[in-house]
């Protein structure tokens, strides 16, 4: 797959800061006092067993999931609430903040009634107010950059999983976000299609996009991430560089998680 030199053009990557974030589902506490700094222009991978809260945490960053306590700042602006513990932020202000935050989902969530081109152009037209012709130009360039220049007229049902996920990445990237959230972007893909999606993500990373990636791809976390964060049962258990996390897992639960991963993956062979 050949990619054009730049996916994003010039962006000014954002940082994010989470302080004492808590999330409850009724009695169940899904996130327990999570504090974390997402450095600008770096790749932060969230790993951990299913149900550990990593997707919930990711979805709190663009407030798709409402956190109940603590605060999340994109650069220095609190998202979701007017003040920490205060009133909910208005819809308009929240949408304005979300323009800076791109998101890619496990199930792609492309709009099935629109072509690949329309999927990418929709936000450009409706959110950024770019005239249709120009929006279609930008969308078509964005699709070319993820290697789908010849698929612009296809509906999602006429694309493979890997192609759909690349359209979804183009849809997010075309909005020129300053931070990108990936929620298990390759978990729904057939194994042979994982590589093309990771390839696009690696290129984004190389261009200095701030990325937060929930993933089960330990190879990606080990080789592409700048920071790796391990979560279990709603707690942030360990964080560090990939070397610190993978080669020298001090924490017992982290070591057990990695051991389990290695065993499963050697069994698959």
């Amino acid at each position: 797959m050949t990619l054009a030199p730049s996916l994003t053009g010039t962006v000014n990557p954002a940082s994010a800061r989470l302080e004492n974030v808590c999330k409850f589902y009724g009695e169940f506490q899904a996130l327990k006092d999570i504090s974390l700094v997402i450095p600008p222009g770096k790749v932060t991978c969230l790993i951990g067993p299913s149900g550990s809260g990593k997707s919930t945490l990711l979805r709190c960053i663009n407030f798709l999931e409402e956190y109940d306590r603590g605060g999340i700042w994109i650069d220095d602006r609190l998202i979701g609430y007017e003040t920490v513990g205060g009133r909910r932020m208005g819809g308009r202000a929240l949408r304005e903040m979300r323009r800076d935050i791109g998101m890619v989902f496990q199930q792609f969530n492309l709009w099935p009634h629109m072509t690949a081109l329309q999927n990418v152009a929709e936000g450009l037209e409706r959110v950024k107010g770019i005239p249709r012709a120009r929006a279609h130009e930008i969308a078509s360039e964005a699709l070319a950059k993820v290697g789908l220049g010849d698929k612009t007229g296809n509906h999602p049902s006429r694309l493979s999983g890997g192609q759909q996920q690349r359209v979804a990445i183009a849809r997010a990237v075309a909005m020129q976000p300053r931070i990108m959230l990936f929620d298990e972007p390759t978990s729904a893909l057939d194994p042979e299609l994982v590589g093309e999606v990771l390839g696009v993500m690696k290129q984004l990373a190389a261009e200095g996009m701030t990325m937060v990636v929930v993933t089960h791809e330990m190879g990606f976390a080990a080789h592409v991430a700048d920071r790796v964060v391990f979560m279990e049962r709603g707690e942030l258990v360990a964080q560090g560089s990939p070397a610190e996390i993978f080669q020298n897992p001090g924490d017992r639960r982290l070591a057990a998680f990695l051991q389990g991963y290695l065993e499963r993956n050697s069994l698959e062979l």
């Binding site: 663009n62 798709l64 819809g91 949408r95 304005e96 979300r98 323009r99 935050i101 791109g102 998101m103 989902f105 199930q107 969530n109 492309l110 709009w111 099935p112 009634h113 929709e122 936000g123 409706r126 959110v127 979804a168 849809r171 997010a172 909005m175």
Partner: peptide, 26 residues
Amino acid sequence: PRGQAEAAMAVGLAPRDIWTRILLPQ
């Protein structure tokens, strides 16, 4: 699927557009 509206919110579409462009056509 719930993800349809979520993807629209993540892109920053206003509720009115989410209804008229994403949910009601489907």
